[in-house]
């Protein structure tokens, strides 16, 4: 599949933003971060910039962005529609939580529970995003069981790395320390999920040129003449081959950047509080690059079955 930049940006930034909203609520609930205006402004500012920026960028790849509101109407059948509605509903608890924290200096008790509810809604929104892809049978590499966990775990993972960096920068030593274990857990879990995903899509057998044409009973099918001598819409949108050519190298880079280096940074920071700010920021930088590469690869290496008619 052609990896559209707007969709890669959208899924990674909203994933990290929603993950951060979840972890902020957890930190408030556990009383590890008080209703500090400066820290709240920075944290919610980053979280909402990521979420709103991502959602806006997702409208950029539309042919008619001015009609985007119509996408909210078909929640009965369409995961894209459900995602739009979930994203809008999630703003209610999360924005209320941010307002209580910033303007009424309260982030504990029932406000923390409101925040946790917003965190769950955030994850639900990430789930609807992942289902858009997981429900497409025509793209066998997406309609596997590991797609949904991949989106959810990477959202919690990137949100945790981001929250760790913010806690370190904001001087919340206790919060940063508490976050170490969940962050390391989700970095490891993310790696397991991605490795399982890759091994699954490499092993799965799906349609072939023989079933696509129905000519399998006569022998081996090979395209000898394409419908056009120039690439058409289908080839340009679905026939992306660069990632499939370099998949092994690219996957290795994802493992190093998204999971390996952040894991190293966060674990060393555990023992070296003097340089924890530098280490968590470095972990965040590597993780951002790694997750963007992971998402690019998720789109780019997925092969649409229509390519079977085109020998690509």
């Amino acid at each position: 599949m052609h990896p559209a930049k707007s969709v890669i940006f959208f899924t990674t930034t909203t994933g990290a933003g929603y993950g951060l909203l979840f972890w902020l609520a957890v930190l408030a609930h556990r009383g590890l971060v008080g209703p500090d205006f400066g820290f709240g402004l920075l944290a919610f500012g980053i979280a909402f910039t990521l979420v709103v920026g991502g959602l806006l960028s997702s409208t950029l790849h539309l042919g008619r962005p001015e009609r985007a509101w119509r996408a909210l109407s078909q929640w009965r059948s369409s995961w894209l529609s459900r995602e739009g509605i979930a994203a809008l509903l999630t703003f209610i608890p999360t924005v209320l939580f941010a307002c209580f924290w910033l303007f009424w200096h309260n982030n504990s008790g029932y406000v923390a529970w409101l925040g946790l509810f917003g965190g769950v809604m955030s994850l639900l929104t990430v789930y609807t995003t992942s289902m858009i892809y997981a429900s497409l049978k025509a793209i066998p590499a997406w309609s596997v069981g590991w797609t949904v966990p991949g989106f959810l775990v990477l959202s919690l993972m990137s949100g945790a790395v981001l929250a760790s960096a913010l806690a370190a920068v904001g001087g919340y030593g206790a919060a940063a320390l508490w976050l170490v274990l969940p962050t390391l857990f989700f970095l490891a879990f993310g790696l397991v999920v991605k490795l399982s995903y890759w091994s699954k899509i490499d092993r799965s057998v799906s349609s072939s040129a023989e079933t696509a044409t129905g000519l399998g009973e006569f022998g081996k099918v090979r395209l000898i003449e394409s419908p056009h001598d120039q690439p058409n819409y289908l080839i340009k949108e679905m026939g992306f081959v660069i990632a499939r050519k370099h998949r092994t190298k690219l996957r290795r880079m994802v493992v190093i950047f998204a999971f390996g280096l952040p894991f190293l940074g966060i674990s060393i920071g555990w023992f070296a509080p003097d340089i924890v700010v530098f280490l968590t920021l470095a972990a965040l930088g590597f993780c951002a690059v790694g997750v963007a590469m992971e998402r690019w690869l998720f789109f780019a290496e997925a092969k649409h079955v229509v390519t079977l008619y085109y020998d690509t």
């Binding site: 539309l62 042919g63 996408a71 369409s78 497409l136 025509a138 229509v306």
Partner: peptide, 25 residues
Amino acid sequence: ICIGCKLCSWACPYGAREYDEDEGV
């Protein structure tokens, strides 16, 4: 009312859907 999100062309296994770049639908 089509917004040109192209999701239908991703969902179709047969490549029956076409995107009109000029009209965005």
